[in-house]
Amino acid sequence: MLNVSRETILNCLLALTLLVVPFIALSLDEPFYVTLATRVAIYALAGVGLNLALGLGGLISFGHAAFFGIGGYAVGILASHALNYEPHFSSPFELEGTTQMLILWLVAMIVSGLAALIIGLFSLRTSGVYFIMITLAFAQMIYYFAISWPAYGGEDGLSIYVRNGFPGVNTLIPINFFLITFGVLMSALFLVATLRNSRFGAALQAARQNEDRLSAVGIKPFNIRLATFVISAMITGLAGALFADLNRFVSPNMLSWHTSGEIMVFVILGGVGRLFGPVAGAALFILFEFIFGGLTEHWMFFLGLVLLAVVLFARGGLIGSLAGKVRYD
């Protein structure tokens, strides 16, 4: 018996559309849309990270810009050292910069994960409104640090002169770079889907539904949440790394609290806790920006109105309205 839910069909359609649009754009000689689709994929990836913590774990992090920005800066800093032939430090061992995406991604994820470990150790001791405010505050701390630390551009940001390389692929060709980001996005979605169905995922979702129940069976919610927060940050950090390569530029803006808010908006517009929610949400966001941004420079005003309407009247986001409520097996 073929048992395919409406959500699965919707997910496949979303993935397929995102994959096909850039090729259609290319055939119509409209390369701009390839970049647009790449942005959707990267924003979606950042959202996939947050959705793991927020949607599955119920952790309302308002500080994911920190990880997005850290991922970006990791790439920017390593690449700038590589281009200047200047090692980061020479003792006890020499660490040089690199322009290999795979290594850059790894570093971006490790650094974001470490940052999340430290932030999580403090913020996960609290819950509710405290958690929201504390994650926001820590992200702001890193933001101010990036502004006031002059070595890597401070307020002006840091340019990456040549897009970093990927083995066997010319990343300078937009469609190639799009395919790389698309591949990363799909892998992250697969990872989150796997986690969701695993024992770890069961404990995580139980922690969201009823923390006392989880403790009473002998599983410490704190440990599960901390691990989730770290994985979530690593995914968002990876998105930041790709974003840096897309723009060939990183700035404190990536770390700003507006970015945290926007990542959250991707997740909400698409549907909290839905696997493809961030993909739908990021696509809606970019579409909105593209259409209304062309009509008025004050498109954010209308985004605010739409967001307000979604929160007040259309809970569940796009996937929620199209595929109904979440059902567990």
């Binding site: 927020l54 308002f62 959250m264 909290v272 005003f301 967001l307 307000l308 929160v311």
Partner: peptide
Amino acid sequence: HLDQVLATFALILIFSE
């Protein structure tokens, strides 16, 4: 709290813009 955060974030966008 999630809804509160989002709705008041939306208000910020509206006020600022």
